[in-house]
Design a protein around this nucleic acid. Structure first.
Lengths: 227, 227
DNA sequence: ATTTAAATGTGAAAAGATTCACAAAACACA
DNA sequence: TGTGTTTTGTGAATCTTTTCACATTTAAAT
């Protein structure tokens, strides 16, 4: 029997990412200094929360003076190990997998898909820009590029099997697009992205909202929301 | 100035989706009855939580008898308005947008992308299986198909503009793949999916874990996890 | 140099989510 | 019919996250 562990990503970390992305934009348009409420306004949280989050990750500004944009970005980069490149492998060159392999934003953020894998021999092309290998070469490539993080984009039916192979090959973090919950040992982090569920959540809230005409039943709606 | 609201999707709702997906699988393999601990084991949560979640959404089983799989699925379908089809529009037929338009799992769950839109005239093809329209026809199509939910898969730079147009046209829920936080009125639900952030989260945790060799500094790691 | 005003950083309080624990229900079997 | 066992459903307790509130710091103005 397999050990089962579920990891969830902290909201505070997700917010930190928002702050950074926001800072990048502000830097671009020439802003040099921000205050907790600047970031709060931009990201839809409270200024208290921004400061609490910074405090959690050991980020400090200067009183009255706020935060210096460049300095803040630098601190965040350090926390996120974004000084160096990160090699990623992607398994499954189907519909979603192929589009992820071409997703330029990963590259812009120093996350490089160095190799992809597929069981279909017709898809295997080791000479293309991002090579598509057979699954048999998984461990070899992962070792060569010192890969620690993988993207799973295979059909539901084979996702667990692929995850097991990846873990065997030394992968410690997985982002999984197959609509199934992966079972992994405790030291392997999994981030499940279920596109259907995400879309259904939206539909659910839209319907809840439409049902609650005006103020009636609004409480039920807001039980599921933050603002 | 625009009103700004951030909506977040409740954890309990996400878990409910997990339970359902799990129930579907169990039904497929012929299971007729489940207990709170069955679902708990399968989804990596506690049995208490399963029951609490059910209680929150008004779902009941029978004491000692557990839950009848078919009955449970039916109740969930009702909660999720899954008895009828849902028409969706998708904006942006680039890399990600195109793959989402071909994502069959949406259809399997009665979420139909009835139309897509792109500013590029070369992509516009109203005769293909899923038509690609010019943005000028947005309101017309949304009205005709009574669409309430949209997928945004346009570049970062134009995402807010597209969101504004969608809201003008009567859209009440948006799932946004552009790496930018959309600002929307309070009655419009937005679910932001930032693929880079999701991947970065994984990298962050993998690195934290690697730094904390053995038990040392483990506390820091587990601050970010649930098990 | 002193005062004033503005923003941070962080304990304490409040709100929210999860786990505990047990009474109530219902099935099984004598 | 009654007894024992199993599982639900839910208040109470605990743990986590967010918000509040204010002392402290520092930039700017006088």
């Amino acid at each position: 029997m397999k050990r089962f562990t579920k990891h969830t990503i902290k909201n505070s970390l997700k917010r930190i990412f928002m702050y950074r992305s926001c800072l990048m934009r502000l830097k671009m348009i020439g802003v040099e200094k921000v205050y907790s409420y600047t970031l709060a306004d931009e990201t839809g949280v409270t200024a208290d929360q921004v400061r609490k989050d910074f405090s959690e990750y050991g980020i400090t500004g200067n009183k009255k003076g706020g935060y210096e944009v460049n300095d803040l970005i630098e601190k965040l980069e350090k926390i996120f190990h974004r000084n160096k490149d990160h090699n990623i492998v992607l398994i499954g060159m189907g519909n979603i997998g192929t589009s992820l392999s071409r997703y330029n934003n990963f590259i812009h953020r120093n996350m490089n898909i160095v190799a992809t894998f597929d069981i279909d021999p017709f898809k295997q092309k080791t000479r293309s820009e991002i090579p598509v290998y057979a699954m048999s070469r998984l461990k070899e490539i992962i070792d060569r590029f010192r890969v620690k993080v993988a993207i799973i984009a295979v059909p539901e039916i084979s996702a667990q099997e692929v995850a097991d192979e990846l873990i065997q090959a030394g992968i410690k973090g997985i982002i999984n697009f197959a609509p199934v919950l992966l079972k992994t040992p405790g030291d392997v982090i999994v981030n499940n992205i279920n596109l259907c569920d995400e879309l259904e959540s939206v539909i659910y809230y839209v319907h809840s909202q439409m049902k609650s005409t005006g103020a009636k039943n609004l409480e039920l709606l807001y039980r599921g929301m933050k603002y």
